[in-house]
Amino acid sequence: MTALLLRRLGAMVLTLAISSFVIFVAIYAAPGDPVTFLIGNPENITPERIAAVRAEYHLDQPLFVQYALWAQGVLHGDLGTSFYYQQPVSELLSSRLPVTLTLVAMASVLFVVLGVSLGVASALSRGGRVDSVITGGTTFVNSVPNFVVALGLVSVFAVELRWFPVAGEGTGFAGRLQHLALPAVALALGSLALISRVTRQTMVEQQTLDHVEAARSYGLGTWSIVTRHVLRNSLGPVVTMCGLTLAGMLAGTTVIESVFGLAGVGSLLVESINTHDFAVVQAILLYMVLAYMVVTILVDLIYPLLDARTLVRSDRA
């Protein structure tokens, strides 16, 4: 188990190093000279000013030196300074992260609880009416883009019924929950469909296995068969899928945040790209990679607890 953890952490460091370099190079290669944006007013652009700015931001150094300087800063907790806000990037991020994390947490509760429940209901009534309704409904929801869902939710529940606010992230715990309810639903719907289908599929496969038939042969009750055999044995794939979806969500709130006018990390990313605020863009992309990796590592660590066979397999690998 410890060896597994160490190996995963090693792989994570390597991935981080590579992805941070890719992020850095991508922004380096992005069109437009950062110097022009840094100076701003075209009247101020003089050769001396350009040289001064280049020196200040190390833009006169070769690419690898620039990357090394940046990486060194990141490792020491210094993510740089936002050109646009004239504020340390870490401060900016920590003021935006709570909104995004709360949003993802609420959406995750929704898609895990509802997705798994719908999947179980669907699998248990396979071929029946409930199954058709759930499968049809989730297929439909899955095929509608989430910004369309978001606009629909806003027009019905915020504009018409006035149950929820149209935009903003609210203050205080209750205010936050109320403001984030619609965005969380919009964010969760697509994943909910995915999770319910994975749950259904895995359970249907499990239902036909011999140990389920054997349990039936000695008179185990239907409820125990479902919870102790079918659902229990489906947890591996379901948890993995939930983890991957959650990981993707941590890096995929941009559209929903923009639609609902939430000051989260996703909308900050869009703003920073538009204002050529490279330090912020780099930091956010790095956060997204890191968040994705942390969640997938957690899933990897949980999996052997759900199915002891995987530990044997990964030890051999």
Partner: peptide, 15 residues
């Protein structure tokens, strides 16, 4: 009581 053919398949692999 029934004794099935494949002992590996009739015992729940995760328990």
């Amino acid at each position: 009581a029934m004794i099935f053919q494949e002992p590996r398949a009739v015992l729940n692999p995760v328990r």
